[in-house]
């Protein structure tokens, strides 16, 4: 009998009759093991999703019972200038941060792929380190490093004779600051891409070189197609995350402390939703906002999947 991993199950013919009789008992045992998730799914996913749909059609402030108002929340969202602002900010943040994030991660991964042994381990550690920093602390670092008068960033720009802007107070520069700061934690993506690069079979490069391809050509014709699956994955995941970005911007620009300057430029969708729900107690309105976010994320992900399917090379697929 060959060794069969659990991942490959035996066909019915291979099962002995006694095992087949055990099936019913099997089902009971399986459900027992899965029961924590089933319970959690019903209570903390399925019911909340349905109830949130209902709440989005009501006016609800937690204290008084939900008051059914039909689609009024959705109508109100169309006229709320802050929704438009929050959507725009989130859109800009996503459109700029995600591609830059992936391109820089890829460049670093390619550099890292040229180094081996101890040095490679050292750099991987260093690149991942910022990812361990709590997002609250990253929000604070943003305020400190990008401080207009005496922050480190403007200090460095000063060496090159560039007068740095007021990153944290000038509405035009708040977004760029947030985007740049978000790049600080791209080390995890670099490590994912490095793993993908290391999985590209060396024979491909060898035969390409025999055919006279230079490294520019091998990068575009071999490397990128071979790691397109990982690039695609990172694009989807980072886009979804960017749509929901909250903690760093909330820490730096919202909360009870800040009243000195306009933070409109940092009003991301998740922040406005949070304010509506838990600061203004507009639970119905916030639920409607959550559903809009859900639909946007879903639509964007589906578009990416459709486009991605054409561009991603899967091994054995033959349509690279």
């Amino acid at each position: 009998m060959s060794v069969l991993p659990l991942g490959r199950s035996r066909t019915d013919q291979e099962l002995r009759p006694q095992q087949r009789r055990n099936r019913r008992r099997n089902l009971r045992a399986a459900l027992l093991f899965i029961s924590p998730w089933i319970l959690g799914f019903l209570v903390f996913t399925l019911w909340p999703v349905l109830y949130s749909g209902y709440l989005s059609l009501t006016d609800y402030d937690v204290i008084n019972d939900p008051n059914f108002i039909g689609l009024e929340n959705y109508g109100q969202m169309l006229e709320d200038p802050k929704i438009r602002l929050a959507l725009w900010n989130t859109f800009i943040y996503t459109v700029f941060s995600v591609p830059v994030h992936i391109i820089v991660s890829l460049l670093l991964a390619m550099l890292l792929n040229r180094v081996t042994g101890r040095a490679s381990g050292f750099f991987r550690t260093v690149f991942y380190l910022p990812k361990m920093t709590p997002p609250v602390a990253i929000g604070i670092l943003l305020l400190l490093l990008f401080n207009g008068q005496n922050g480190l960033v403007n200090g460095v720009l000063g060496w090159f004779g560039i007068p740095g802007p007021s990153w944290t107070t000038d509405p035009a520069w708040i977004q760029p600051g947030l985007i740049i700061m978000s790049l600080w934690t791209l080390g995890a993506s670099t490590i994912i891409l490095l793993a993908a690069l290391q999985n590209v079979p060396q024979e491909l490069y060898d035969s390409a070189r025999v055919d006279g391809a230079n490294s520019w050509q091998t990068t575009w014709r071999i490397t990128l197609p071979m790691i397109s699956g990982s690039l695609f994955f990172l694009t989807i995941v980072n886009t979804i995350a960017a749509f929901q970005t909250f903690t760093e911007a909330y820490t730096a620009y919202f909360g009870s402390g800040n009243s000195t300057y306009s933070n409109d430029a940092a009003l991301f969708y998740a922040i406005y939703l949070f304010q509506q729900a838990f600061e203004f107690l507009h639970m119905g309105y916030a639920s409607a906002m959550a559903w809009l976010l859900f639909v946007i994320v879903l639509v964007v992900t589906i578009i990416q999947m459709v486009v991605g399917r054409r561009m991603v090379y899967y091994e054995g697929d033959g349509n690279g």
Binding site: T45, V49, I240, F294
Partner: peptide, 24 residues
């Protein structure tokens, strides 16, 4: 099918379940 449902829940933005979960 059930396992597919497990994976599908990962796509759901936290904002959708956040408020009812708070109410629980």
């Amino acid at each position: 099918l059930l396992f597919g449902l497990v994976l599908a829940t990962m796509m759901l933005p936290g904002a959708v379940t956040m408020i009812p979960t708070f109410l629980i």
